[in-house]
Design a protein around this nucleic acid. Structure first.
Lengths: 149, 149
DNA sequence: AATCAAACGTTGTACAATCAACTATATTCC
DNA sequence: GGAATATAGTTGATTGTACAACGTTTGATT
């Protein structure tokens, strides 16, 4: 076993990197296609519904969502517009701070989310988690270090 | 330890999934920013140069590249246009099959790639591989199963 | 109290990526 | 040998994203 310098990269590490990129693309393709095909939702839209459904009173500020949804604030503005047009969410001004607007889950949005959630969870299991097997703990540990706090 | 059904998903698996998404985003942000800032290249452009530099005679068909670069054929057409305009690659018709066009690395493209490669490799080490530690083999194994053949 | 700076969200613009449809060439099969 | 089919790549239209600049509101400083 050759000690691994901190600066160079081993073949195994490089393979892991390439597998990481491929795995990401593959899984997201599947999940996007399933969600889109069966429920007419993009992954971003699903995530917005997910976070809102878990939030107290089913409402969140734009900024709170932007931090979690992996979308920039400006992207979220347009995403929220589309979802509001579709009736999945509604915009509510915040009385305490008139700069902020809340996004709240509508009844239709909740219904759509509840219909889509099993599809998504099954997809994550089928295309990602199911392959982890005995390596689950190690993968979780490594990815958590990479993902940061 | 509770046996894991094939259909449901455990908390640990779900955490791994979330960490996976965050890790991907975080690493790619870093790599994109470094490559863009120090060498004016996007990650996709870098990958095109990488594959060409490794190919025999430094040339590949569009289709061969599209399979490896994680871009659709139409996306690659535009990417190749931009890179040809920038002088990094050149398009060459194939005499044997006039449907195909080859992309070949130019001298400028090679030079740019050679300048950028250390940055990228260091970035992969610093933002991804360096965190794997003793879990490298397990992560590689799991990701390879997910990524498929 | 007035001002200056910071934070929240939205908009204009540009860009990159996709899908579907299309052109052109090659191959297959009666 | 000629029609049907498949393949390589491009193009048009749409979508989604980011970046930078902006208006508005809030909070801090003095």
């Amino acid at each position: 076993m050759v000690p691994q310098s901190a600066k160079s990269i081993s073949a195994k590490q490089l393979d892991a990197w390439i597998a990481f990129l491929r795995a990401h693309r593959r899984v997201l393709e599947h999940l996007e296609a399933e969600l889109r095909g069966e429920h007419g939702l993009s992954l971003s839209e699903y995530e917005v519904l997910l976070h809102l459904s878990r939030a107290p009173r089913n409402r969140l500020r734009m900024g709170e969502l932007a931090a979690n949804v992996l979308v920039t604030p400006s992207g979220l503005t347009r995403l929220a517009d589309r979802m509001a047009d579709a009736g999945l969410i509604a915009r509510r001004p915040c009385p305490e701070d008139r700069r902020v607007s809340y996004l709240v889950l509508t009844a239709a949005g909740r219904k759509r989310f509840e219909a889509a959630a099993p599809t998504h969870v099954r997809g994550v299991q089928e295309h990602f988690a199911g392959y982890l097997g005995g390596d689950t703990a190690a993968v979780l540990a490594a990815l958590s270090r990479i993902a940061g706090p």
